[in-house]
Design a protein around this nucleic acid. Structure first.
Length: 471
RNA sequence: GGCCCUAUCGUCUAGUGGCUAGGACAAUGCCCUUUCACGGCAUAAACAGGGGUUCGAUCCCCCUUGGGGCUACCA
């Protein structure tokens, strides 16, 4: 049978790292097995579901390249199906209406607690007579409960092995607030059947929902599915990342300049590891090597430093044209007016970029020479006169340069030869500071390359003027 | 409280009934070097505790402890 998996987020918050990881593992499993990956929006909670959250989830998944193989379905579009199966359960006497108010339920719960009994629903609405039921349904609101068979539910989890629960502890759970208001456990089971899902891969927080869903599947006569419960992603406090905290929403990472491949690489390593000691993986490699048997059981704390490093590695692995494209949203539009210069600036900073966001700050000096003090120009304890002399010499070398490919190898060699004669720091430091206006920057030949001949000359002249005025 | 899951360096992890317990991030030091990065080379850093099983346990079993999840008319 072909593998069919799904990611089923509820649009009650922005897409967050934990959700992406679940989606990723499903997607990788499907790709690796040659199966299908589906997407389902679980929007049965009308109070908390919002369109903007759904949009956020969809947009970000697309940005990551995790796209479904079949049309997306929404639970609010499937009310007829839930109603049908709810009626079936009611008719077969596997479920019943419950009229208890939340106040009554709360009192019952507290009473059980104080008596030291395991709290669960007493089942007092189970045996309401037909006539009474019809009268009550007209006058008061009712929820639908499943008659929970009392037995041990056992299933084999692909990651955890055999897991057992005693349903006796659950009581008759509520599966719907009304015929057209299903609750999570019912809706999931009905939709997984509709989408012919073979493997349910989801976060560990759902482990204790699984026996309830198995009971519903059995009551409905649905085939069983295989489960895999992923370890949770934990914050620094070891608590699970929750969608209710905006801090880990994926858009934040996107906006900070993390690459999709880096985010995915980082997330795949949280709970999974390839056979060898490689950690920097392309998406292609992740798909090829993913194996659910190698998924970890314990929760994983995520550390942002490793994400930064992976992002750095993925940026380096990218070709510079591709990187330029990715950088466009992160720079002021006027940088783009000289596209050749922009491309050169990308080339020289490609190997020093931790994220796309840094580029603007790191490269600002290329597009606008910053204000700087004359004291920064001379090297260590050399004099301003030394700096003037050396810069003038270099200026001559540059002016004599006729090669169109600026700076030519000859020019670079000439500068280096001169620097060796005069002392490297004594020549290269003033050159670099004159070109960049900065205490730290890429090397002088990179700067000549990115600025071009005319602007290089101009900047050296500016430095010379500063030096001459102050001496 | 109850139920369930879980346990190797600070973090992510590899690993096996017998290993000097391996790698990566981060940290520290040194080297490279005109600066900042990069890179190179080192250093420090872990099998939670207690019982078993065994000739031998980090690895298998049990208990304890720690951590986490669930315990909604949320998902």
């Amino acid at each position: 049978m072909d593998v069919r998996v799904r990611f089923a987020p509820s649009p009650t918050g922005f897409l967050h790292l934990g959700g992406v990881r679940t989606a990723l593992f499903n997607w990788l499993f499907a790709r690796n097995e040659g199966g299908k990956f589906l997407l389902r929006i679980e929007d049965t909670d009308k109070e908390r579901s919002e369109k903007r959250f759904e949009d956020d989830i969809l947009q970000n998944l697309e940005w990551l390249g995790i796209v479904p193989d079949e049309p997306i379905i929404r639970q609010t579009d499937r009310l007829d199906a839930y109603e049908k199966f709810l009626k079936q359960l009611l008719e077969e006497n596997k479920a019943y209406y419950c009229f208890c108010s939340s106040k009554e339920l709360e009192e019952e719960y507290q009473a059980q607690l104080s008596q030291g009994i395991i709290p669960k629903y007493s089942g007092k609405c189970k045996n309401i007579s037909k006539e009474n039921l019809e009268i009550k349904l007209k006058s008061s609101s009712a929820v639908i409960r499943l008659k929970m068979p009392e037995r041990i539910i056992s299933f084999s989890d692909m990651i955890r092995g055999k897991v057992e629960f005693d349903t006796k502890l659950f009581g008759d759970i509520i599966i719907a607030k009304g015929l057209r208001e299903p609750l999570y456990n019912l809706a999931v089971v009905v939709d997984d059947e509709e989408q012919r899902i073979t493997h349910v891969i989801r976060g560990e927080e759902h482990l204790s929902n699984t026996p309830k869903q198995i009971v519903i599947q059995e009551a409905l006569g649905f085939p069983l599915v295989t489960y895999a419960h992923l370890p949770l992603i934990l914050g620094a406090d070891k608590k699970k990342l929750s969608k209710r905290f905006l801090t880990n929403s994926l858009s934040d990472y996107k906006n900070k300049g993390y690459l999709p491949s880096a985010v995915l690489n980082f997330l795949v390593l949280l709970g999974w590891h390839p056979k060898e000691d490689r950690e920097v993986l392309s998406i292609f490699e992740m798909v090829n090597e993913f194996a659910i048997k190698r998924v970890q059981k314990a929760g994983a704390v995520f550390n942002p430093e490793k994400l930064d490093w992976l992002n750095f590695m993925h940026i380096r692995a990218m070709d510079s044209e591709e990187l330029s494209k990715n950088l466009i949203p992160f720079v002021p539009t006027d940088w783009l007016s000289d596209s050749a210069k922009f491309n050169r600036s990308v080339i020289i900073s490609k190997d020093r970029l931790k994220n796309l966001c840094d580029f603007q700050n790191d490269s600002k000096f290329i597009f606008t020479l910053p204000e700087y003090k004359v004291e920064t120009i001379p090297w260590k304890d050399t004099t301003q006169q030394d700096a003037i002399k050396n810069l003038k010499n270099i200026l001559d070398l540059i002016k004599n340069e006729i090669d169109e490919n600026f700076p030519s190898t000859e020019l670079k060699d000439a500068i280096l030869k001169f620097a060796d004669e005069e002392g490297r720091g004594n020549v290269l430091w003033p050159l670099r500071t004159a070109l960049s206006g900065m205490e730290s920057s890429p090397g002088p030949t990179d700067l000549l390359y990115v600025l071009g001949r005319a602007e290089s000359i101009e900047r050296i002249n500016i430095a010379l003027r500063k030096l001459e005025v102050s001496s």
